[in-house]
Design a protein around this nucleic acid. Sequence first.
DNA 1: ACCCGAAATGAAAACGTTTACATTTAATGC
DNA 2: GCATTAAATGTAAACGTTTTCATTTCGGGT
Lengths: 339, 339
Amino acid sequence: MKRTTLKDLAKKLNLSVATVSRALADGPNIRKETKDRVLKAAEEMNYKPNTIASHLRTGRTGAVGVVVDELITPFVAQALRGIQRVLHPEGTSILMACSYNDPAQEIRNLQMMEEAQVDGLIVFPCHDTGDTDVYLRLIEKNIPVVFIGRNPGDIHASEIAADHHSKVYFLVDHLVRTGRTKVAHVTGNNPSPYFNLLQSAFTEALGRHRLTVDPDLIVGAKPTFEGGVAAVDELLRRGKDFDAVFAAADLQAIGVMNCLLEKGVRIPEDVAVAGYAGSYLAKMVFPQLTTVEPPLVEMGEKAAHLVMEKINDPSAPDRMLKVDAKILLRHSTHGPGYQ
Amino acid sequence: MKRTTLKDLAKKLNLSVATVSRALADGPNIRKETKDRVLKAAEEMNYKPNTIASHLRTGRTGAVGVVVDELITPFVAQALRGIQRVLHPEGTSILMACSYNDPAQEIRNLQMMEEAQVDGLIVFPCHDTGDTDVYLRLIEKNIPVVFIGRNPGDIHASEIAADHHSKVYFLVDHLVRTGRTKVAHVTGNNPSPYFNLLQSAFTEALGRHRLTVDPDLIVGAKPTFEGGVAAVDELLRRGKDFDAVFAAADLQAIGVMNCLLEKGVRIPEDVAVAGYAGSYLAKMVFPQLTTVEPPLVEMGEKAAHLVMEKINDPSAPDRMLKVDAKILLRHSTHGPGYQ
DNA sequence: ACCCGAAATGAAAACGTTTACATTTAATGC
DNA sequence: GCATTAAATGTAAACGTTTTCATTTCGGGT
């Protein structure tokens, strides 16, 4: 059986389509009594508004696109929780696409979002950023864009970011203060503003203790478990001694740990391992991993709020929100005995 | 500046809207020459079809809803990869919603999908299934539904599932053959068809070796890391000796491992640990976890194909596809020396 | 040159809302 | 009781496609 439309309701109630429409949108200019009549009939005839028609008329799709760099890590998963928590109650749905850390795919995803005519976009950019033209086009089209975690290039859009510098500084400082002098750093496989930022904080923290960075103890690797394993192999190949590893990504740190343990190295007695931008994964390994955990759910919520704000009021200004990441000192850097 | 419409193109080219539309949809009944003219003009005027209008006319949204039970585990993440790989090239977008293992949220998500008028649905049902009415309503509305992993209740819809029984049987059999006699089992916190299936295979495999199941060695726990930790605490509290643990979920198994290691228990020397329905997470812990890995990407692809098939031909039959999960024997059950 | 069928194009309705504007009804003040 | 204004309802256009049906154009066979 066909679905009920406003027309059907109107006919049934001897009203015009307009009044029925007004009765359902609870605006003014409608008599309480007729409103009730309409609501009752809508209930009876199981009326469900055709959102597509509404979209055509209003020029909005009620959907926000979420383009993520990856999904395997809980990073995005957690943030999505915050996003969904804000968006769904507002009746906004989430159109998702994953880029799998491939800039070309990221661009395709954005184009798809453009075609789907989303009302706004929340983007977790890939580490390696490609072309930024799509972003500029979207922004020119007045589609609000909010970045989480990174901003590819210098795009004029809202952004939610953690204060990486101070956190990395604290973490590395902590490693040195607890007696480590030969700290290795596993960074990204390609230079990016993000990884460069972490590395400079790393360098700065060591410098504070009059330690110079040994280039042989800096190794680039994919931000994955396998990257961490490969990084350890590379470090060992280089033959320089190290008593701590600070990895730019948690998955790397976990790979580092696994590889070291495999080779009989004790953690943290022989080598301390610290990760970064982690999540509950860090708690699942043994020994549990010291890391810095951004408030992912909160970041998602903030991003969602920002995008909704801009959707509802296109003249709203772009905003750059800083969030405070939590430093979690655990056994991978100081063993169970540490206070 | 306003976006270009068919009308604009028609006016510019002195054609009717109809012909322009036909030219762009590459059907028959259009002269090669005019088609080229239209295409050229469309390019020049940067014409982008208004998909919303098209949706209204065709009654399709070009979106498939994906409702997932959780996101933290790579389970769904991997399957999504398969889904996206199939759907995106067909121009179908993915409307996502996560239920966070809350049946009430699952129902709300499904309602949201219904309102968004998705063309079809792929669902990873929660462990605890609530009301199945929504499903029945969706199916009655001729919205194709494909389940992955589980089928909540006995709903007449397509389904992609792994052959759990034989895999669990194999795994438990393997534990016994490698010398374990007191095998504990961590199952779900609430009885569900899925967990019951695993447990019965577990019982059957032990029975084959004339081992009876000690009810004290069966413990229910949430399918999470914390659930695994709690399960070990409970087992130790009960005081019965055990030399192996088979956990129904990988996160549980990892929690079990972590908790045991914390207490100085050696894995696998003292206790062997096996998980189930895992993913690359199992490879990240130390020692690496023995588990059964469903072909997640493939399952996602199959689900996507099934849903598209049914969207394109509503009379297509429902199908129940079995996939073959991979058994991964690793160090958590037999140590590095094992062949 | 004429007719016929096929191919190409045009006219217009339809999809189901929302909303500006016009009209009717009700309420208020004198 | 009548004018004035506000509230409630109706009319109809619009959103941008797709598609049915009618019309025109074209090519080929006699």
